[in-house]
Amino acid sequence: MNIFRLAGDMTHLASVLVLLLKIHTIKSCAGVSLRTQELYAIVFATRYLDIFTSFVSVYNTFMKLVFLGSSFSIVWYMRYHKAVHRTYDREQDTFRHWFLVLPCLVLALLIHEKFTFLEVLWTFSLYLEAVAILPQLVLLQRTRNIDNLTGQYIFLLGGYRGLYILNWIYRYFTEPHFVHWITWIAGLVQTLLYADFFYYYFLRFIGGRGVE
């Protein structure tokens, strides 16, 4: 564990907590894409399949449970909670996210480190996470203005993988044989997809106004 990875995990945790805070306290998911949340639930479900078979550390297992629990409960809130469900913008959240799942699965079957069930699904989760934010970014452009909490959520979610890239650079130079091209390229693509959001975020958010 290094400071970059810890910062990345805390940023990721913060993004999830901000979203849960928004949905649970003000009972609203306005501006939040259910499709992105569903993709993230699939990402964690396919990435943490080894949660009971390979123990790394208490921290690792705890964080996996937090990410699994929060992503599925956010989907549940947005789909079934009567008050929250009413604030979901169904008409605008129309990105065909299932069109993202299949190509990622095919790519994982073609490009992976080992051809085993767990490894292919784990690789699939990396590819899917790289594009999972697309429905949310499309919704963001359609709804123009979003509230601060949603803006913070997207900012933290985009930032965590950027911190992971610093972690990979650090580990590459400090650990022999630490080479994971698939993880690195997927992580880079994922972070680059946030580039224009970050641009507007810094323009607007830091200026004290909402993200437009």
Binding site: D9, D50, S54, V56, E113, Y164, N167, H180, T183
Partner: peptide, 10 residues
């Protein structure tokens, strides 16, 4: 092989 290293990242 590097991939034998446990997946210690989230």
């Amino acid at each position: 092989r590097p991939s034998m290293i446990k997946k210690d990242e989230l």
